Amino acid sequence: QKTCLICGDEASGCHYGALTCGSCKVFFKRAAEGKQKYLCASRNDCTIDKFRRKNCPSCRLRKCYEAGMTLGARKL
């Protein structure tokens, strides 16, 4: 079983350049394409896991970029 690099849930494949679950794939697409700016209410070090991935979109998006996700990457 492969694990999502963002939240640790079961990965569905390589999306936008990183091994992710469906939830993180859709989140990244919407967040990266959108005009909304996300700000962390804490210290930009929130725990992003399967159960808390929706708590801080700022840290989740940062983790996506750190994992190498880009909109230009093709699905592998």
Rank of each mutant, 00 (worst) to 15 (best):
A31Q: 10
K37V: 11
R52M: 10
K63N: 08
K63S: 05
R52C: 09
R74E: 15
D45S: 04
V26Q: 13
D9C: 11
Y65C: 14
A32P: 02
K35Q: 13
S58V: 07
A32D: 13
F27P: 02
S58F: 05
S58Q: 08
K29Y: 07
C7E: 00
L5S: 13
C40G: 01
G13I: 03
N55K: 14
A41I: 04
C21F: 00
C40F: 00
C46A: 00
Y38V: 09
T20F: 15
Y38A: 11
K25W: 09
C24D: 02
C4H: 01
G22L: 07
L5N: 11
A73V: 11
L71W: 07
D49P: 03
C64W: 00
G22A: 12
A31R: 03
E33M: 14
G17N: 10
T3E: 07
L19Q: 15
G22V: 07
H15C: 12
L19A: 10
V26A: 08
C4K: 01
T20C: 13
R30Q: 12
K37I: 09
A32M: 12
K25A: 14
G68D: 02
H15D: 06
N55A: 15
C4A: 01
Q36D: 14
C21L: 00
S58H: 08
K25E: 14
T20S: 14
N55R: 10
V26L: 13
C24T: 00
R74N: 11
S12G: 11
D45H: 06
A41W: 06
Y65F: 11
G72K: 08
T3I: 13
C24P: 01
A31K: 02
T3G: 09
F27Y: 02
A73L: 06
S58D: 12
I48R: 04
C14E: 13
I6G: 02
K37D: 13
Y65I: 09
Q36W: 05
K50W: 05
D45W: 03
S23Q: 09
G22N: 06
I6L: 01
C14S: 08
N55C: 10
T47P: 13
D9S: 10
G22R: 07
N55I: 10
A41K: 04
A73R: 13
Y65E: 09
Q1F: 15
I48D: 04
C24K: 00
S12Y: 12
H15V: 06
G8A: 13
I48K: 04
D9I: 08
C46W: 01
K63Y: 02
K63L: 08
K25G: 13
K63W: 03
S12H: 05
T20K: 01
C56G: 00
C21P: 00
C14W: 03
T20G: 03
A73I: 09
R74M: 11
L5R: 08
R74P: 15
T47F: 09
S12A: 11
Y38E: 10
C64R: 00
A41G: 09
R30G: 11
G17L: 02
C21H: 02
S12Q: 14
G72D: 15
T3M: 10
C21S: 00
T47M: 09
A31L: 05
C4M: 02
C56S: 01
R30D: 10
G13H: 06
K25D: 12
S12D: 12
C40S: 02
Y16D: 04
R30Y: 06
C7Y: 02
G13E: 04
P57Y: 12
L5W: 08
Y65A: 07
Y65L: 09
K50M: 06
C64Y: 04
C56W: 00
D49L: 03
N44E: 12
R52S: 09
A73C: 04
R30C: 11
G72N: 08
I48P: 05
C46V: 00
R30P: 03
K29P: 04
K63P: 00
K63G: 03
P57S: 11
T3A: 09
C24Y: 00
K25C: 13
G22F: 04
R30N: 14
L71Y: 11
D49T: 07
A31W: 07
T3H: 05
L19F: 11
L5T: 13
C64E: 01
H15A: 07
G72H: 11
Y65S: 06
F27R: 00
D45V: 08
V26K: 15
Y16Q: 03
C40Q: 03
K63C: 07
T47R: 08
L19D: 11
C4G: 02
Q1V: 15
C21R: 01
L19T: 12
K63M: 08
L19R: 13
A18Q: 05
L19V: 12
A18D: 05
K35C: 13
C14R: 07
C7D: 00
N44H: 05
K37M: 08
S12K: 11
C64I: 02
S58G: 15
D49R: 04
A18I: 15
S12P: 09
H15F: 08
Q36T: 06
C14F: 09
I6A: 03
A73Y: 07
C14P: 11
K50G: 07
Q1A: 07
R30E: 14
Q36A: 12
T3K: 05
G17P: 02
A18G: 04
L39N: 13
K50Q: 10
C46K: 02
P57L: 10
Q1N: 11
L5I: 11
C40L: 01
D49Q: 04
T47I: 12
P57V: 12
L76S: 09
C64F: 01
E33D: 10
E33I: 14
S23P: 14
C7L: 01
E33A: 08
G8M: 05
R74Q: 14
L19G: 03
L71P: 07
L5F: 09
I48Y: 06
S12V: 12
S58P: 13
D45Q: 15
I48A: 05
G72T: 11
Y16V: 02
Y16F: 15
D49S: 07
G13A: 07
G22Q: 12
G22D: 12
I48T: 09
Y16A: 03
T20M: 00
S23E: 12
E33N: 10
S23D: 10
L19Y: 09
N55F: 08
K35L: 08
K50F: 04
L19N: 10
N44Q: 11
K29F: 14
K29C: 03
L39R: 13
R52P: 13
C56T: 02
G8H: 10
D49I: 04
D45E: 12
K50I: 05
K35G: 12
A41D: 14
N55Y: 10
D9N: 13
A73Q: 07
K37W: 07
R52I: 11
D45R: 13
C46N: 02
C40K: 02
C64G: 02
C21W: 02
T3Q: 11
A18W: 00
A32H: 05
T3R: 09
Q36H: 13
A41V: 13
S23C: 06
K50T: 10
F27D: 03
N44G: 14
S12R: 10
N44D: 13
T20R: 01
C56F: 00
F27Q: 01
E33S: 12
S12M: 12
C7M: 00
V26F: 08
C40D: 00
G72S: 09
R30M: 12
A73D: 12
A73E: 14
G13Q: 05
C56L: 03
C4S: 00
G13C: 04
T3S: 11
A73G: 10
Y16L: 04
A41M: 06
A18P: 05
T3N: 14
Q1D: 15
C7R: 02
L71F: 15
S23K: 07
A41P: 08
A31M: 06
G17M: 05
A73T: 06
Y16H: 04
C56Q: 00
A32E: 14
G13D: 06
L71M: 15
C46M: 00
H15I: 10
